[in-house]
Amino acid sequence: MSKNHLIKNIVIVADLKNIEDKKIILYGIITDIIFSSSLIKKNSDFQNFTQDFFGVQFKGYVYKSRTLLLARCLRLIEKYDLEKVNVLIDKLLLVFNIHPPKNSKNNSKNLDVLLAWKKVINHE
């Protein structure tokens, strides 16, 4: 999927109100990010990705398989409540430079980490 299409989906998910609809579209967005070697080239970069976006670290073998990593990330999203889903969406909005997140509670450290991911995704 192209980066422009990914950005359109992030905008769509940000405007939705129903948590189940948000989760369904987030599944697709996260799938595209994980399977896109143009966005994240090396599997080893996913250790920082999961820590920064989901706040978790998996065992090393999970990062060797994008398919296994995707399954773990989707399982996390499935368990999220509305607040956690919205925080994840805000992080995606910031990284893809769509517009500033609404009512963001991120501190400056989180903002710095997300801006670093923005540089990785935009190949800066």
Rank of each mutant, 00 (worst) to 15 (best):
K17P: 02
V85H: 01
L92A: 02
K41Y: 13
N97R: 10
D15W: 11
D81V: 06
D15H: 14
L68Q: 09
F35N: 14
V13Q: 04
K17V: 08
S108I: 11
N97G: 13
D112T: 04
V11C: 08
R75G: 13
H5C: 13
K8T: 02
I30A: 07
H5L: 14
A71K: 08
K59Q: 01
V85N: 04
L74S: 04
L111K: 12
K109V: 10
N110F: 12
K17H: 10
L82A: 13
F96P: 01
M1I: 15
S44R: 15
H99L: 03
L115K: 15
T67A: 10
I33E: 06
V13I: 08
V113K: 06
D81Y: 08
L76R: 07
D21N: 09
K79L: 14
C73T: 15
E20G: 00
E124T: 04
D15Q: 15
T31Q: 12
S38F: 14
K42H: 05
S37P: 14
E124A: 00
V95N: 00
F58M: 01
K119F: 10
S44P: 08
H99R: 07
F53Y: 08
L6R: 10
V120Q: 08
K42M: 06
T67Y: 11
A14H: 00
L111N: 12
Q57A: 15
I25T: 05
L76N: 05
K102E: 01
L16C: 02
F46D: 06
S36M: 08
I19S: 09
K17D: 08
H5A: 15
F53E: 07
I7S: 03
K102Q: 03
L92V: 01
N4H: 12
Y63M: 06
L6W: 12
N103S: 02
L111P: 10
I33P: 13
N86G: 09
V95T: 03
G55V: 05
P100W: 11
